Simulated assay, not measured.
Amino acid sequence: MHSYTVEPLYVKSDHEVIAADFYRPKSIEKPAVILMAHGLAALRHFKLVQYAQHFAQAGYAVVLFDYRYWGGSTGRPRELVSIEAQLDDWRSMISHIAERKSIDAKRMILWGTSLSGGYVLSLASRLHNIAAVMVQVPFVDGAESAKLYPLQQLPKALKISSQDYMGAKVGMSPKTLAVVAQKELCFLPTTDSYAGYMSIVNPDHYWSGEIPARVFFNLIRYRPIQEVRQINIPVLFIAAQRDSLIPIESSRETATNIAPYVQYEEWDMQHFDIYHGEWFKKVIQTQLEFLQQLFGVQ
């Protein structure tokens, strides 16, 4: 087990500044590096620190960041989710890491969960300086996930999304929608999502629980599944069989499209189980074994 330091890191992305934590093992001169960020409307402090700590103890450098508009990063309106901007933030962080002398940029791994899992699959299909990808319960097909949204609520969600999008064009204040809620209209209305999402929220960090509604339509149109055939690096893909947000059939089809480069696993769990208890222990063990097969013991 390696000791490590955690340093603040600030990286420019377009006109904004991305806040990150840089975990660096003390005893390894140029370690492999894992780049991490969270899923929909989540901060890096929502259960991702526990992953970063385990990776650093195993001898890997880790850069864990917040997207623009979130957490310690700059940008307004606050708590805006923009798929395009968040993908740009990933590219900015990748470019920054590639230039750092204290790590081995040739061994850069992208790590994603839920929506960020979709991001890193998209990026791995386009970029050529990535060594491997690890995704857990990744968002792979917005069109298919939309079919799980309650049919009677879908027109209302699309309407407020359209209103917010058009209002933003003329400088109006955002129309927001709850990320999760027990009874009201929200982004993630499935039966296990409220308790599941709230189980990862860190009360020590500000989080309103609402985001501008304009991203709803963009999420439906975001389909990493259509890009993954271009991936030609090792991918660890862990799916939840009882995922109420991502159809297991979509995960299976995506993994098939990545073959033969994918190590695909299905576990009998729900979407948010992977952050807790025995499932968390299992995912850390599985991810570290995958890395060891690629790079050997750090």
Rank of each mutant, 00 (worst) to 15 (best):
D66R: 02
L64I: 11
V201A: 05
E210P: 00
F22H: 13
L288G: 04
K106E: 15
F187K: 00
M166R: 05
I246G: 00
Y165C: 00
V62G: 05
R229S: 11
K281D: 15
H38P: 13
G209S: 14
G75C: 05
Q163I: 10
P155E: 00
T74P: 01
V283S: 10
L40M: 14
L151S: 13
E99T: 14
I103E: 06
R24T: 04
M108N: 11
F272N: 02
K47W: 03
A143I: 10
F187G: 00
S173V: 11
T286M: 05
I225V: 15
L35S: 05
Y119I: 11
N129T: 05
A32H: 02
G71W: 04
P25C: 08
L80G: 10
W279M: 03
E16F: 09
Q53T: 15
V6N: 00
F216L: 11
I34K: 05
A178V: 03
S250H: 06
I248T: 11
Y222C: 06
N218W: 12
A259P: 03
S125K: 01
D89L: 04
T286H: 04
D204Y: 06
L48F: 15
Q86C: 09
F295N: 07
E29F: 10
M166D: 01
R252E: 08
A195P: 04
E99H: 11
A157I: 02
A146S: 07
G171P: 00
K281L: 07
Y119M: 15
E84A: 14
L121R: 08
S125R: 02
G117S: 08
I211V: 15
F290S: 04
R126I: 10
Q57Y: 06
S82T: 12
T256H: 12
E16K: 08
A259E: 14
L110S: 11
D21L: 10
K12G: 01
E278Q: 10
G71K: 01
G167A: 07
K282D: 11
M198R: 10
T74H: 01
N202R: 07
Q292F: 01
D104C: 07
Y165A: 03
